[in-house]
Write a protein that binds this DNA or RNA. Sequence first.
DNA 1: GTTGCCGGGAC
DNA 2: GTCCCGGCAAC
Length: 519
Amino acid sequence: MHTRRLVKRSILGSRVYAPSPTGDGAPVTGVVQAVKQENRDASAAGARRSVYTVLMQDGSLKEFTEEEIAAGSSHTAAKGPLKSSLKQSSSNGVSDGQKVEGGCLSPEAAEEPRLAEGKRVSRDPETRSVSLLEQKRKVVSSSIDVPHARRSEEEVDMDKVTAAMVLTSLSTSPLVRSPPVKVSEGLSGSWKENGSVGPFTPSSNSSSGGYWSWSAPSDQSNPSTPSPPLSADSFKPFRVPSQGGAGPGPAGPEDPSLDEQDGSSLLFDEPIPRKRKNSMKVMFKCLWKNCGKVLSTTAGIQRHIRTIHLGRSCDSDCSDGEEDFYYTEIKLNTDSVADGLSSLSPVSPSVLSPPPPPPSPLPPVSQPADSHRPLPPCDSKEPPAGGTTPLSRSAPSALYLIHTDHAYQATAPVSIPSSSSNSASNSFTPTNSSSFSISWQSPPVTFTGNSVSPTKSQGFGEQRSHTIAVLSSPPRATAALSRKVRGEGKKCRKVYGMENRDMWCTACRWKKACQRFTD
DNA sequence: GTTGCCGGGAC
DNA sequence: GTCCCGGCAAC
């Protein structure tokens, strides 16, 4: 559903005007870092108030109420609170442009790096044109504006889910995976689709893309339920990976805004995702050396990293998403399901072994790749993490590990090589570090190794896809379908020849698998 | 075409 | 259970 590309623009990372901290009345710009809800004053009809944490230009972090920001934003002719400014950004070409620019950290921006650098230059006009489209759309359907918003939000959620599912599916052993597979397939399918389809890319769907791309995805994800029941909160955790360089906790912020504009917000406040197939609680663990802090929200962890470890206090522009590299997603399985399978479950990699496994070269899929994309969206502005941040210098291992985590998930299946060590070594040595190949051998896959030999000549990517394909199908079927690989060793027939058939092992005589010269 | 061996039949 | 072979797939 909903590929990451369809991600709706988040408030996070948006540049807004806020009352001057100095109180001189002059509005200043800042970038929304987080949004939190305050239910306390929800006296009337569950009305909620959102507090926006805005990183001011001077690097300070301020919190503003919606009203305050609204006031500030009025200077740019963008009316209303943040959510409005986002939604209505198209109403003002200039402000829209600003938003987009400021949205360097926004979800879609996170993917920008994927696009040619030059794209950034041409982005403005593009965005505007899209905005115009959106504007028209909104004019026509203004009365159902809210639902739209919700849809896009859900879509965003689904994107996360998709990402999560993809990751999950990649990391899951075939045995456990079969059930989820369908989901992930569906997800990934749409994702691919989106990935390749221009119109749905984040860059072009500034704010409306989510709207019209929703229908298809939703069908996939939830054929039986036309309505968009997904709880945004429930999927927050999944956002992390897919948000890439996005500002801290893009997930959090949107909810409030939605709630505000949608009275029925209660529906979305369910702590537990309705659709979540697995009841996992996702936490985010700081991987900084000796830290290990665990927070429940992306925003939290990112902020933690940024402020505590990176020592950054500047506005979100400084946050090039580098934080992403220093925390990892930890899924806690709240269901005590299938113990036997637990070790194979997708969760195992991160949960069972907090310290991620040895590194692997490539992230499994484009999505995951994004989430931990080494070069955050704003790189063009800021020098790559490599040189500038203390982080990159002092905590490379963490980065390493994180990458490992996901890559590992993807590559683990490659270990299939089970029996034929030759093939295994062939397929690994060339592409990876020695440490890498070793750990992958472990998975007790009963795969006969049929797929291994072919991989010798394949590129790593191909291997991966192959692996994925294999995993997607029921393990049993796979094993059953694939004939036992022809033994490479000598057989009775070869050794003794037809003339000495009586010297063959019985199996050979019976045309069964040779028992004497087993491979 | 050769070879390894699975699946299945005959006994 | 043993013995055999048709037939498939890898080579």
